[in-house]
Design a protein around this nucleic acid. Sequence first.
DNA 1: GCCCATGATTATGA
DNA 2: TCATAATCATGGGC
Length: 366
Amino acid sequence: MDEQQRLSHPPGQVNMSNVMAPQGYDGGYGQSDHGEQRKQEIGDVLQQIMTITDQSLDEAQARKHTLNCHRMKPALFNVLCEIKEKTVLSIRNTQEEEPPDPQLMRLDNMLIAEGVAGPEKGGGSTAAASATAAASGGQPDSAIEHSDYRAKLAQIRQIYHTELEKYEQACNEFTTHVVNLLREQSRTRPIQPKEIERMVGIIRKKFSAIEMQLKQSTCEAVMILRSRFLDARRKRRNFTKNATEILTEYFYSHLSNPYPSEEVKEELARKCGISVSQVSNWFGNKRIRYKKNIGKAQEEANLYAAKAASAASSQIVTDPSSPTGSSYSHPSSQSQMASQGGMYMNLNGGDNYPGGENSWGLEDSE
DNA sequence: GCCCATGATTATGA
DNA sequence: TCATAATCATGGGC
């Protein structure tokens, strides 16, 4: 059965006598004489409805007007009402409140936590602060990174809100358009306000899928931004001169065993304003690079030897009870530090390193 | 822009 | 688990 046939002979037992004579309407026909003729007329009306979309707007408007004024229109309307009564699915059950989408809730929570959605509160400064604090390792330039992060987050926030506004506008426009269309159509076919509401709900649901995509993209952008700031490799900063000196000094003063204990690492980290793992990295790199380029390393060692020697001698003048002035508490460091100046001299002379066996399997230099 | 120094990461082995 | 070695990625001097 094609569309026209279906409309001409709708499913269900439509009481055609009611249709043909709705509430006092006679249409100028008798009850049975012209039944075929009436059917033919209804068929014509339906045919016009079916072809209305093929016509130009003006033509369609004119045709619509003609249809609306057609004497059979009330009859057709009643037919449609009756068909609908018998066939349409109840919309009562479709109005149930659906629980909020957990995925959407997660995205919302994240966007609020990152300061992208919800009240501005300084543009997500809390999240920015935590991110940049982790990235900077407590270094003084964290303030710069903080503002940089905040600026980029503000950009994301702005794009998000612009897009959200566009989405809401488009959604409202489309909803209004559909509602107007349905109201217009309700003149020729039975449409209940509840159905219009339902349609609005369907449209909003469709648009909320787009909204979810927008939120997802925004979350991804925030995650990328965070990862860029948290990825220390990307934000490598040279240690301060003072920090490098402290580490190098310790390294050369413990050349026979340049493996600081956890306590010493913590102490060095505190003094240098870096993390313990950074201290570990530094010593790892230093050992490797010392081995690789021992000649150059010795020049550096001599430099520190002279420095340490002068420091030690001046310390002796001011405080004879304190031979080194070192505050490191490494168990093996005490004896080593006591002979610090001598150690560097040994390096110069090519003798064995002090402090016992060379535990990292290093051949004596030179 | 090139090159070297340097901090961080990763794969591997003891 | 930690140290080593190789490598990556960036900073900074020239």
